[in-house]
């Protein structure tokens, strides 16, 4: 594995390699780092809403992480909530507007660290909402610290020699936990490091949102997202790094599908 040399400027300038975006973005301007998986996750979520004709009446609840700034560009009514509390806020929204399509966007720090009980209780209650987790195993927004989902051996700024179970405990497999609850209707784990994975993950999102429309119960899609900045790996190697590390611990699969 190559690590970014931080003792000199990048050898090559960044360049635009593709330009297409969801019509549900008010602008393509963004603040995501090169190689970030989150904008891909946002894009397929918005495409899923559009393709299911669920945009009208959709309400999002967004937590705090790098994706948080995207509330200014996503053209959906949004409540930007406290760290960790998105499933609770979404519960209140959905109960008052049961006809709407309610989704949350959280990172692993937001959902699995700060808000673990929120998401578990919301799932157990079978709230008819769709929770989307961008899991990159690191606090990207604050600069690359360990989260509960950081994999064993992962180097972060506060586990600099790699996550060590003796010192830092073991990662939480949140989707497996949620799948074990009777209130969850659909739980899937996708990824956005390869074209095939992206297509598959989009199908997962569409399935989850459709089930919400049918009133099936709690639905969740965990999306493994690259964070080369927070992982301290070159942008072009983010996908491979993820396949080698996170995906081995968190396999891409549908964990629960009640229908």
């Amino acid at each position: 594995m190559n690590y970014i040399a931080t003792n000199a400027p990048p050898a090559e300038k960044s360049k635009l390699v593709a330009n297409s975006h969801s019509p549900l973005l008010q602008t393509t301007e963004h603040h995501f780092c090169a190689g970030c998986g989150e904008p891909v996750g946002i894009r397929i979520l918005l495409e899923a809403l559009s393709e299911l004709s669920l945009v009208d009446g959709s309400i999002g609840v967004v937590g705090h992480g790098c994706y948080g700034g995207a509330v200014t560009t996503i053209d959906v009514d949004i409540l930007q909530c406290l760290h960790g509390r998105a499933p609770s806020c979404a519960t209140g929204i959905k109960r008052m507007r049961p006809e709407s399509t309610v989704f949350t966007i959280q990172g692993d720090g937001d959902m699995v660290n700060e808000g673990l009980q929120e998401v578990l209780h919301t799932a157990a209650r079978g709230e008819n909402i769709t929770c989307v987790l961008f899991n990159n195993g690191v606090f990207g927004d604050t600069g690359g610290q360990m989260t509960t989902t950081s994999v064993i051996g992962q180097r972060t700024k506060n586990s600099i020699n790699g996550r060590d179970p003796a010192a830092h405990g073991f990662p939480i497999h949140i989707s497996n936990l949620i799948a074990s609850l009777e209130g969850s209707a659909y739980v899937a784990r996708g990824a956005v490091h390869k074209a095939g994975a992206i297509a598959k993950t989009k199908r997962m999102l569409k399935r989850a949102l459709s089930l919400q429309q049918q009133g099936a119960g709690f639905t969740m899609v965990e999306i493994l997202t690259m964070c080369p900045t927070g992982w301290f790996v070159p942008v072009s190697e983010g996908g491979d790094y993820m396949a080698d590390s996170m995906e081995k611990i968190y396999p891409v699969t549908v964990l629960k599908n009640i229908a």
Partner: peptide, 20 residues
């Protein structure tokens, strides 16, 4: 928030930091 402005280019956001 009722979702009725979602997709119209005039959607709303409620946020303590008021970025709009």
């Amino acid at each position: 928030l009722d979702g009725k402005l979602s997709g119209t280019g005039k959607s709303r956001v409620t946020w303590t930091f008021a970025w709009g």
